[in-house]
């Protein structure tokens, strides 16, 4: 085995998976609060454009990410208004958000076609990045890859260790009880939606800043949907979102490499692999886990405090 190639493959897998990690975590934080937001795709593309536009204007990476998250959060606030204030159906509102976001990004983004953002430099982690094979594969990435893993850690800590996280989970599991206990269901959900939108926005910006890196309309190409599926795959747990995203990314990248190495199967069959493997893995996990992988109890249900 060619170890140089192996480390390159792993490197590519991490890059291809990172947008899914961010967006998946963004969906997860909302769903743990009981909000089902199918608008992730729309949030991603708007973040993709905002991040790209900022980078093209010459701002540093940090500002680009901030703008991407801000754009995602702003679009998400429309969703929050409709779902929390006006009791609109969240499933349909999420889909409408996707339509709206894709249109908005296309409209505002047409002037960015043909433009180039500066390349994002890798952070070579001292010592670790010097290790053969593993060093290049894992420890010489752009800052966002590390940030995505760190974010998962923060969310895990938040959900399991912090008091606010506990409240958020309570709201997600049973909003009527949480309300009776005096927690602001609407407030918690609003924050979750805003954070989720911001994370989805960052996920989108990873596509335009690092992975491709350019902006064209419609370029998220269904990644928001995959992210939503991964949350289910992960049984609503942050580290499993990473695992799911990396699994999906691995199969996607390995099938491409397989073709370049001369595997002779119709490419459409190979392109099906990531989806089929994810289903298979879910079946294995679900059949063993029993009930521990259940969705948050109030997921997707409308909360009306007057009752």
């Amino acid at each position: 085995m060619d170890y140089g190639l192996l480390s390159s493959i792993i490197h590519s897998i991490l890059v291809a998976s990172t947008p899914l990690v961010f967006a998946g975590l963004g969906a997860l934080i909302q769903e743990r609060a009981g909000v089902l937001n199918l608008g992730i795709e729309g949030l991603m593309i708007v973040g993709a454009l905002a991040g790209f536009a900022t980078a093209v204007a010459g701002f540093p990476l940090l500002v680009s990410i901030l703008m991407a998250s801000l754009a995602g959060a702003m679009l998400a606030s429309i969703f929050a208004l409709l779902v929390l204030r006006l009791y609109a159906n969240p499933v349909a509102t999420g889909l409408a958000l996707t339509l709206f976001g894709l249109g908005l990004a296309a409209l505002a983004g047409s002037q960015y076609v043909g433009q180039a953002a500066p390349q994002v430099a890798a952070w070579e982690i001292p010592f670790l990045s010097q290790i053969p094979v593993v060093g290049r594969a894992l420890f010489s990435h752009d800052p966002l890859v590390y940030l995505s893993i760190f974010t998962a850690f923060v969310i895990w800590w938040f959900l399991t260790k912090s008091r606010t996280g506990l409240i958020l989970r309570a709201v997600g599991e049973n909003h009527t009880s949480a309300h009776a206990l005096g927690f602001s269901v609407r407030g918690v959900r609003f924050l979750a939606i805003i954070c989720g939108g911001a994370l989805a926005g960052i996920g989108g910006s990873y596509l335009t800043l690092v992975q491709t890196p350019l902006f064209v309309e419609g370029m998220t190409a269904g990644r928001g949907w995959i992210a939503l599926a991964l949350v289910v795959f992960a049984s609503w747990r942050p580290f499993r979102v990473i695992a799911g995203a990396y699994l999906f990314g691995s199969v996607s990248i390995i099938q491409l490499h397989g073709q370049a190495l001369g595997v002779s199967v119709a490419s459409q069959w190979l392109s099906m692999l990531p989806y089929v493997v994810t289903i298979g893995a879910l079946v294995v996990i679900a059949s063993r886990a029993g009930t521990s992988q259940a969705a948050p109890g109030s997921l997707g249900k409308i909360f009306k405090e007057s009752r």
Binding site: A96, G103, L104, A106, L107, E217
Partner: peptide
């Protein structure tokens, strides 16, 4: 076409 998508989104909202 993009703005018609935006209009559609608004209508649904």
């Amino acid at each position: 076409a993009a703005s018609t998508q935006v209009f559609q989104g608004l209508l649904l909202f």
